[in-house]
Design a protein around this nucleic acid. Structure first.
Lengths: 224, 224
DNA sequence: GCAGGAAACGGAACGTGGTTCCGATTCACT
DNA sequence: AGTGAATCGGAACCACGTTCCGTTTCCTGC
C-alpha cells in the first residue's frame, strides 16, 4: 500500500519535527491537513464525552479551531467522525477480550467482558440512539464495530460453550446489539437497570446450556 | 399566548344534528376545531404507519388538509401527537393482558402477552429511538405508556410468579423498556432476532424461578 | 337573521441542525 | 521565490420543529 516513506524536508517544521504522514494512496499529506485532523479528533472526543454524540458539528469545529468544511473534508458524514473517534476504544475493547480469556475461566471471562462492553456503550451517551435513528448512511459506523467486536465475542462464546457453561446457539452480533440496546436505562430507574437486564440475558444463556435448543423455541416450550 | 381568562358559561344547543363536543373544562368546542382534530389524528396515524414516527409535521398537516399552526394548537409538541395517536393501541394492548390471563395458564399468558407487546412496538418504526433521543420534552409520551402498561404486566408477572413459573424479583417497567429496546433488529439480521433475544430474556426469568435471587447477583454467581 | 368578538385558522418566519459551495489561503515542490 | 493545487473558512442551502400574526370562521346574544 504505502509506496514510499516520506522523509522530512528541512524546511520550517510547523509541528515540531513531525514527519509528514502518507496517505493510503501514497500521497504526502500536507502538515496543516494532518494537524487539523488531529485537532478534530481530539476536539470531537472531548465534545462527545461532554455532550454526547448528538453534539453539533459547529461546536466541534469551533473547539478544534477549524471551519465546518474542514470537518466534512476529513469526514464526509457526521457519523464517520463518530466512528473514527470511537475506533480506538473499540480496539481496546477487543484487546480486553483476549486478556480476560487468559485470566479467567470461560464463562467468567465472558461475563466480565460483557460488563466491559457495557461500560463502553454506556459511556457513549446517545451512541445507540444515533446509530439507530441515523437511517441515511450510518452504515459506516457499525461496520467497524461489527468487524472487530464480533470475532472477539465469538471466541469468548465458543470457549464458554465448549466448557458446557452456556448454550451454543447464540449469534455474537445479535448479542452485541441486544446488550447495547439494554445499556440505556429509562428515566426514573436506578443505574443498576442495565446490569439486571443483561443479567437476565446471561441467565437465559445458562438456562439452555447443553441443550442446544434455540432460545425462541425454548421460551415457548411448556416445560424446560 | 396571552393570558386570557376564559369565562364561557352555559352553552346553548348549537344548530345542526351533531351535538358539539365539550372540553374537559366544560367549554364548548367549535365544530371546525373538532373536525380538524379528527382529521389530524387520522392523518398522523396513516403517516406514522407509512413513514415511521419520524415523519415531519408538515407532511401530516398537509395530509390532514390543515395548517401547521393547527397541529400545534391541538398538540403543543410533536410528541403529544405521537402519544395521542398511540393511546388507542396502548389501551388495546392493556385489554389483551386481561383476556390472555383468562384464557391461558399464568406463564403462557405472560409469554403470549409479551409477544403481543412486541408486535405493537415493532410496528411503530422509530418509536423507541424517538422516545430515547427526544431528550427535551418526550416525558409526556412514556407517562401514558407506563401508567397503563405497567399494571397490566405487573398482574401477569404476579400470577406467573405465584405459580412458581418465574422469578418474582423483576420490575415490570424495566421489562417493558428492555423488551421495547430488543424489538429493533440491527440491519443484516433476520426478523427472528427480536424473538430470539426476548426468548433469552424469558429463559432468564425462568432460570431463577423459586430462588428469588436478583438477576444481577444470579448472573455473577459461579454456580446456580 | 345579523353583527360582534373571540376561537381557530393558514402559512410565513425563526432558530437550529447537517451538508454543500466557492473564493481566499496555505503548503509542497521546482 | 514562484506556481499550481490541496486545503481552508464561513456563508449559503435545505429540512426540521416551533412560534407569530394577520385573516377567517364559528358561536352567541340580540
Amino acid at each position: 500500500m504505502k509506496s514510499r516513506a516520506k522523509a522530512v524536508r528541512s524546511r520550517k517544521a510547523p509541528t515540531a519535527g513531525t514527519p509528514s504522514a502518507v496517505d493510503v494512496t501514497g500521497r504526502t499529506v500536507r502538515v496543516d491537513a494532518q494537524r487539523n485532523l488531529d485537532a478534530l479528533l481530539e476536539a470531537a472526543k472531548a465534545v462527545f464525552d461532554a455532550s454526547g454524540v448528538d453534539a453539533g458539528v459547529r461546536e466541534i469545529a469551533k473547539r478544534a479551531g477549524v471551519g465546518i468544511a474542514t470537518v466534512y473534508r476529513h469526514f464526509p458524514q457526521r457519523s464517520d467522525l463518530v466512528a473514527a473517534v470511537y475506533r480506538r476504544e473499540v480496539d481496546a475493547c477487543v484487546e480486553a477480550a483476549a486478556t480476560l480469556a487468559k485470566e479467567h475461566e470461560p464463562r467468567e471471562a465472558l461475563v466480565r467482558w460483557i460488563h466491559r462492553y457495557m461500560s463502553f456503550i454506556a459511556s457513549k451517551r446517545g451512541l445507540v440512539a444515533a446509530y439507530r435513528a441515523g437511517v441515511p448512511a450510518f452504515e459506516a459506523l457499525p461496520a467497524y464495530f461489527r468487524k472487530n467486536l464480533e470475532p472477539a465475542l465469538q471466541a469468548l462464546l465458543d470457549a464458554a460453550a465448549a466448557a458446557g457453561r452456556i448454550r451454543h446457539d447464540v449469534e455474537p452480533y445479535e448479542l452485541l446489539w441486544a446488550i447495547a440496546n439494554l445499556s440505556t436505562p429509562p428515566s426514573g430507574v436506578g443505574p443498576q437497570y442495565s446490569r439486571r437486564m443483561v443479567g437476565l440475558l446471561i441467565d437465559g444463556l445458562r438456562y439452555g446450556a447443553g441443550q442446544g435448543a434455540p432460545a425462541s423455541k425454548a421460551s415457548r416450550r411448556e416445560r424446560g
